[in-house]
Computed example of a mutant assay.
Amino acid sequence: MPDTAGADVAGARIEVEGLTKLFPGAAAPAVDGIDLEIRPGEFMTLLGPSGSGKTTTLNMIAGFESITAGRIGLDGGDIAQLPAYKRNLGMVFQNYALFPHMTAAENVAFPLKQRKVAKAEIGRRVAEALELVHLGGHGERLPSQLSGGQQQRVALARAVVFEPRALLLDEPLGALDKKLRESLQLEISRLHRELGITFVFVTHDQDEALALSDRIAVFRDGRIEQAGTPAELYETPSSRFVATFLGDSNVFTGRVRDGLLDTGWCSLRAPAGPEGAVALVVRPEHLRLAVRGGPAAEGNVLSATVTDVVYQGAFRRVLVRFDGGGSGQVRDTAGVSRSVTVGERVEVCWSEDAGVLVPDGAETPAEQPVGAR
């Protein structure tokens, strides 16, 4: 396989315009007229809850699902009516989809044999692909003789061995345990850098999306709610849905007037943003705990009672109940700040520019109290 490290131009440009999928008998489209441009060599993640349309979108790009309306472009050409095998796109599935009676090498060789590549060339490419995923020497093993992580590496090798210009990955790490998922996240990131091709990755795991992506498209009810870099989506969400789906958030709803947010049970200094009915989103790591009666806190200050402390290694999640109403959480660095206990009275404070104002509405993935994920 060619050494294309850093070769952004190696990847394909994928464009979807007005892409729609309405399944027979469904009351609403599974995908509802979305537009999205995926740049050459980009790692684009389609993120969203179950039923949001992300996997259906990937399957339409792959050619496994027909479209109801719209256009799918690959390097300027419309491929919407092409069968999957003519699109020349690599595909990796959550369940590996390996042939159990074939060895790892035979599984990787399969797409090359389908393309009638010369036998000597097949041997060379298969060996290179297995080395690329750190499975050199495992070619004669059957899938049943490999771990889950090794099987997914074989699936990755099979998907890239015929040198596609784009690789589609449908929740490829969903069946793996946490530690193995994190290890393979690094492998997928390395593969993207070394191959230089376009990756389109589907997941419902927010942390995975933040760790891997150049850009993320957040799906909701068949539409793209917001697309941008991980930092843009996390730090400046455009809606309450994005803020609460992508990471943990404290959300205070109310009306803003003259720079103050009136929630009905407290008044908070708000950053610049829309007037009227809004939601103030503050990430847990931007909140700070101050002991009542200690040094005066600055910025927004709310009295609260600690309801739970969850130790998570490098940090603690401190859950609180505010005096006026509502609950929240603070991400507190373990071993640095003073420990607090359940039932302790505290003050929660943050600077007024630490949050972001977004339009209010029933936009959370589920109706949850302030601070819930």
Results as ranks from 00 to 15, higher is better:
Glu131Gln: 01
Leu132Pro: 00
Leu132Phe: 13
His134Glu: 09
Gly137Lys: 07
Gly137Val: 02
Gly139Pro: 00
Glu140Trp: 03
Gln150Glu: 12
Gln152His: 08
Gln152Thr: 06
Val154Met: 06
Val160Arg: 09
Pro164Met: 05
Arg165Leu: 07
Arg165Lys: 15
Ala166Asp: 04
Leu167Trp: 04
Leu168Gly: 04
Asp170Tyr: 03
Glu171Val: 06
Glu171Phe: 04
Glu171His: 10
Leu176Trp: 06
Lys178Gln: 14
Arg181Val: 07
Glu182Ala: 11
Ser183Cys: 00
Leu184Ala: 05
Glu187Lys: 12
Ile188Met: 15
Ser189Asp: 02
Ser189Glu: 02
Arg190Phe: 09
Leu191Gly: 05
His192Arg: 13
Arg193Phe: 05
Glu194Cys: 01
Glu194Ile: 00
Leu195His: 06
Thr198Gly: 11
Thr198Met: 10
Phe199Thr: 07
Phe199Ser: 01
Thr203Trp: 04
Gln206Arg: 15
Asp207Leu: 10
Ala211His: 12
Ala211Ile: 07
Ala211Met: 14
Ser213Glu: 12
Ala217Ser: 14
Val218Trp: 04
Val218Ala: 03
Asp221Arg: 15
Gln226Lys: 15
Gln226Gly: 13
Ala227Phe: 08
Gly228Glu: 07
Pro230Gly: 07
Tyr234Pro: 05
Glu235His: 08
Pro237Ile: 09
Ala243Pro: 02
Thr244Ala: 12
